[in-house]
């Protein structure tokens, strides 16, 4: 239930944003005081992106599709490799993880997605902010972390920062599209068909603090196609610190 409610709340945030741009929806943030100059001598460890593609049932539930996921993984890998050289700093590709290491990495990736969800829901969407974080928000403080456990991830000892990339795409099923039409024809409520979460985060590999986050629950680019994956990768890494991407 909570998942559906959360998905709907997220959809509502996006819907309200679309209806009232004045309320202000942000998409990216940088930790206060963090700066990364090009060619700074810092090493960025790029973890293998988490990619899930499926369809969205009428009620908004995610139903995974193996074939779509496989092509999206391939497409995004190629797209990201094209951009990695333009990130402005030295890139280290994370070693392939096995067994316990792979499990640890997957869990951190899931935590990164959960933190990004919380940031979108409770910080980027201004009308939905948590009262205890009001002062932080007023002073533009961006204080979110994955915890110091990131220091034990494979490859972390050889780099300064880790780049986490998470994608979850749900393409609207026929039922969902019917709901979209019904809702529009009936009470005139816009319902989203399909969800396209794309999160990119630069993380301090000693503290786990998120230094830069670009997260959107409505990303562009059909990752099942090579061209769409290029678009998605560019959108994910837009304004990456120290790079000239997106400028």
């Amino acid at each position: 239930m909570k998942h559906i409610l959360r998905a709907l709340a997220l959809a509502m945030c996006v819907t309200l944003f679309a209806a009232a741009p004045a309320s202000g929806q942000e998409r990216s943030a940088t930790k206060q005081g963090f700066e990364l100059a090009p060619k700074s001598g810092k090493k960025i460890l790029v973890f293998r992106p988490s990619v899930q593609v499926g369809s969205q049932s009428t009620g908004g539930m995610f139903e995974p599709n193996g074939e779509w996921t496989d092509s999206a993984k391939r497409n995004l890998q190629v797209a990201l490799e094209k951009l990695q050289t333009k990130l402005g700093n030295e890139i280290v590709v994370a070693p392939e993880a096995y067994g316990e290491d792979a499990q640890k990495l997957a869990e951190h990736m899931a935590l990164f997605a959960a933190v990004s969800d919380a940031v979108i829901e409770y910080q980027f969407f201004r009308g939905n902010r948590l009262p205890t974080k009001k002062r932080d928000n007023k002073e533009d403080v961006f204080d979110w972390s994955l915890g110091a456990g990131v220091a034990d991830l494979p490859g972390a000892k050889d780099a300064d920062y880790g780049l986490f990339l998470y994608n979850r795409d749900a393409y609207g099923s026929t039922g969902r599209k019917v709901l979209q039409v019904l809702a529009m024809l009936g009470p005139g409520i816009p319902v989203k068909s399909g969800e396209h979460q794309g999160y990119a985060g630069l993380v301090d590999l000693k503290t786990g603090d998120i230094l830069w986050l670009n997260a959107d629950a409505a990303m562009g680019g059909d990752v099942r196609e090579a061209e769409g994956a290029d678009k998605r990768a560019a959108q994910l890494l837009e304004d990456f610190p120290g790079s000239d991407l997106g400028q």
Binding site: L16, G59, G175, V178, L179, L182, A183, P187, V191
Partner: peptide, 17 residues
């Protein structure tokens, strides 16, 4: 199922945040 989903979603969406 579609209609129940639609009604539930609309009821929730219609509720002010």
């Amino acid at each position: 199922r579609t209609l129940t989903g639609a009604v539930a979603a609309m009821a929730l969406l219609a509720t002010p945040a």
